[in-house]
Design a protein around this nucleic acid. Structure first.
Lengths: 343, 343
DNA sequence: CGCAATATTCAAAGCGCTTTGAAAACGAGT
DNA sequence: ACTCGTTTTCAAAGCGCTTTGAATATTGCG
């Protein structure tokens, strides 16, 4: 069923039918009702390609997912972020398009999506400290929003981010206040902007308390369970092992926990652990009582907000840049406690 | 840059330029090279909406992701399945579209995608034992593939699935052979087809060995870490607790492990655990030595194959239905061992 | 009742591509 | 040089929608 057929059935012109369905004022109310009824009855839906051609809008938003070429791994927070965004898109009649691209050809992917007119805007995920994609998109003059920020970006751009620096500074200070001095940071990849900021927060807290950072207690890689486990095992073998560990993700924290258990250590008593909790729906940090003391910020909620901001940008391409900084909560669970007295 | 502009620059008709770029034979080889060069130089890419309108194909494949309305959770295997599919799509010049829909309106989503001409085919994920979506899509006569199967589907359809029944039967038998008699199954939601088949496999193995199933040792819910933990805790409190546990996912198995540790039990010695391992990239089952003894089948690989099969179907709508049954490996890790002798 | 103002409807152009059917250019054969 | 068969190129129609500019119906008012 297309517009032409529908209008013939109704004995009206395509113009009138189109206007009736799109809510234009210059159509008789009785006609509109009649048209709407017929459309419903026949299950008519405008062909979105034709509509897009005519309007110049695709009503599609693109997400280009970087396949970290080295590791071929799917970022686990992706699922929940997208779930949040998808909800907002649906409310605003946008569809969501995905492209998986290796790190090296992401720029190309963006170009392709826009030049082919496939999308009206894109979400840039996982920005690095040096992030070439931001200037590419800026120069292309297309609507986009960054989930996260890039420290070395020169031009202004829309972003939404968690205050990673502050939350990790607070978490570190929390541990210091409990008497810990040997505090490890099991971080994400250093080239990622969020990881850099977390590290900065960690460093700042140590500095303010006059604790010299120990490079042995600082590690960064992609945040898998295996990595958390391996790193924790390594650190426990040090002559002067950490008494507290900050983990950049619940997933690597699970690996840390496994390492501790294998070594007969009890979390919260022998060693304290704080994790960053993105509130992944399949990996919740406990129910009523958190398993891990954690810096908490819902990545799903970030997805919702990011989508909103992007849609605003699409509707007002020349509005001044908007940014949004979310604060993470620090929730206390049973994985932290006073530093054990070493006599 | 559109076709018209490009053809004006070249002093050729749109027809010729279009044919040159699409590899039609009736264009002079010299011309083709000249056209291709100009297209590259100007970064010309055909508008995909216009192209779609003209060809009647959208070159887009849709995934409708059910938001389990009750739980609002993102299925964790989703990310890896999609990563696999995306790769195949990219190779075949398909884009990938996502729609998030509550369980109740998924049918509506499919209709919308096809009627609006947004997609050429869809992937149906997470089929239930009774799966109305399959007959809906069959009746619509559109290309689709099911990841999994539906026991009570009447019409034939394309699917790709893991042999869940056999793999769980083998896993159960493996435990029985180790002397276990009290074997628990921490399963996915019972209405899901895969969960039903796993349960059947489990039951069959028990039956064949003359072990009476105990309803206290059978639980099903969405496979989160919390659920695995909670269920294991409950079961350990039984007067006659299990000596072995089958977990339907690595994620719930992690929860089981946490419960065991809290109770001072050592996995593999005091209690055996087998998990189903989808080889999620962020939750690998160990490196060289598996953490869990597991039934293993890569969901990413399934995604790749599913995409291939769907594209074949789109290209040959009337070919006979194709199905593909993958066998899971049974890999042995350190989470299993002989049943403890209770004297 | 007649005319201007307003409300409602319409035909046709255009979005950027593919594809049909026709025309032009070329080359070989006589 | 002329015809005929091939190659190569082209103009125009069509995909299904929106939107412009014009036409027709209706209403209000003197």
């Amino acid at each position: 069923m297309n517009l032409k057929q529908l209008s013939e059935i109704l004995g009206l012109s395509q113009t009138t039918v189109s206007r009736a369905l799109n809510g234009y004022p210059e159509v008789n109310e009785g006609t509109r009702i009649r048209v709407q009824a017929a459309a419903d009855k026949h299950g008519y839906r405008p062909n979105s390609r034709a509509k897009g051609l005519a309007t110049g809008r695709s009503m599609v938003i693109g997400h280009v997912i970087p396949t970290s070429s080295q590791h071929e791994m799917v970022n686990p927070i992706f699922g929940d972020f997208v779930a949040g965004a998808a909800r907002t898109y649906a409310e605003n009649n946008y569809d969501m398009m995905f492209t998986h691209a290796p790190d090296t050809s992401i720029e190309e992917s963006y170009r392709s999506l826009f030049n082919r007119g496939v999308v009206d805007g894109v979400v840039l995920q996982g920005p690095k400290v040096h992030e070439p994609r931001i200037s590419v998109l800026s120069r292309m003059g297309v609507p986009f929003i960054v989930h996260g920020r890039s420290t070395h970006a020169e031009e202004p751009y829309d972003w939404i981010d968690v205050n990673n620096q502050r939350s990790f500074e607070r978490a570190t200070r929390f541990l210091i206040d409990l008497g810990h001095k040997r505090i490890a940071l099991i971080n994400g990849l250093e080239e990622m902007d969020f990881a850099r900021r977390r590290r900065n927060g960690y460093m700042t807290a140590l500095e303010k308390s006059g604790i010299a950072p120990d490079p042995n207690l600082l590690r960064s890689a992609e945040m898998t369970e295996i990595y958390g486990h391996q790193t924790a095992c390594d650190m426990l073998k040090l002559s002067d092992p950490p008494t507290a560990i900050l983990a950049s993700s619940i997933i690597s924290a699970v690996g840390v926990r496994r390492a501790l258990e294998e070594n007969g250590l009890k979390m919260g008593r022998d060693i304290s652990v704080i994790a960053h909790d993105d509130e992944l729906s399949y990996m919740r940090n406990g129910m009523d009582v958190p398993i891990f003391t954690a810096t908490r910020s819902s990545v799903r909620h970030a997805g919702e907000l990011a989508a909103e901001m992007l849609i605003e940008r699409i509707n007002a391409p020349n509005a001044p840049p908007k940014t949004r900084l979310l604060e993470a909560e620090l929730v206390v669970g049973s994985s932290t406690g006073p530093a054990p007295q070493r006599t």
